[in-house]
Design a protein around this nucleic acid. Sequence first.
RNA 1: GGCGCUAUCGUCUAGUGGUUAGGACGGGGCCCUCUCAAGGCCCAGGCAGGAGUUCAAUUCUCCUUAGCGCUACCA
Length: 471
Amino acid sequence: MPRVRFAPSPTGYLHIGSARTFIFNWLYARKNNGTMILRLDDTDVERNTQVSIDSIFDGLHWLGLNWDEYYRQSERLALHKEMAYAIFAKGLAYRDFTPAHADEEEREGEAGPWLFNAGMRELSAEESDRRAAAGEPFVLRFRVPRGENRAVKFKDSVFGDQYKKADEIEDFALLRSNGMPTYHMASCADDVDLRIDHIIRGQDHLTNTFKHVLIFEALSETKPKFAHLPLLIAPDGAKLSKRKHGPVVSVTTYRDAGFLPQAYINFLCLLGWSPKNNREQMSIAELMEAFSFSGVNRSNAVVNFSDEDPIDPKAQWLNGQHLRSMPVNDLLPAVRAVLEAAGLSADEPSFAFVVDTIRARYTTLHDFATKGRPYFADDYPMEPAAAERLDEPQARELLRELGVRLQAQTEFTEASVEKTLRDLAAEAGVKPGILINGSRAALTGQAVGPSAFHVFTAIGRDRSIARLKMV
RNA sequence: GGCGCUAUCGUCUAGUGGUUAGGACGGGGCCCUCUCAAGGCCCAGGCAGGAGUUCAAUUCUCCUUAGCGCUACCA
């Protein structure tokens, strides 16, 4: 039973790249009957904000993906320190009393990697203990094995075998001089304690993994498997950042733009992963079934947006696909919500029929409240193109007459309306198109939309007649 | 600078030592049709560059280039 975790650091909003990482973890866990853990990596007290934590929860709740266990690193600091000192006790770490940033300038322009502060690594145990006891601040560093033949290796489920000479890895910090664990220490300590067995995260951690392997080996007999995901980048090749690219990087932007969560999840999955059978539109269940690391790509994926169109066209297309193909009843709550937010009401018995009639031409939920307004309210704009239809010769008087005739009939179906309309057109000697297109214009204020006869039944008998008479 | 990862249409991707290099979005066209969508069909568009191995390289190797990541007492 796999145990996986999503471990965001709450220093911003929920980034779409983070959301995708969550999704892949979730898919893997659910497919294999595993456990999904949400862990807030909030050890950086300076930069953590409640707003950010709220944003992460907001985004995750919207996506509708759940987790089974929840932890906050800030509540587990004692454990991290304990594990750091366990490493120290094994002789695999040492105290470095060098003041912070003391040799920053020396490091710059250095040909190779900085490995450690000379002298500190080989300080005698007695002197180290004495200085510590005297209250001198120190950072606890991992004692990376040295020597030509020493290497660290691991197998990545996406990137394959990874290998690095130990001499290329610096003696990284485990504990800061204020006693707080570093990211590497806290993350690995928690992964060990929570028995995470597959770490699925962004590729930006690929090279950090060598350090993590060292910590895992120092802490336990088993180490987790790793899967690194390609990054999501902007069209300019840079990584997505709020400051540079704006709201496109935030998950809530897509929620607010009227996306269906399952459609957005579908879109995110297709960035850097492929089911390899040309499938594009997939449900959550289908994604879960198809997910595997062998389908994960190794190169970064561009989220295709521009100033004119801030949302990836493929995401929009996919949303439209889900919108029109999902069971209509599953769609109704979301539509009802956007209508209510726009001050429109959706309580009619024909609601499902109306939604089903108009959804094929919409791409976001917002379209129901904007383009769909005439179906849910009596005050709606008359578009110029629609007005032109009404201005056709005889159009207005015939439409009013149509209203009269429909009122005289008790039957009101697509077929009955069509017959009445066509009979009237024939009598008047005009093309049926005049009345057909005119009806759509009269009933919706729009020149384009569903088949006119569908519009009649969607708008309903009384309102249709009233609108015809008003032209 | 050092180390690492990556490189197929504009974008997301499939794929192979011999393929007309496949699909999707977007773009163009046609069909359908009461309009607009949807749907169907068609078109344009790609293996970063250079060597090497081979009868044959987009595919394997090397180099170059480019992008990204790491190189913190950030995560």
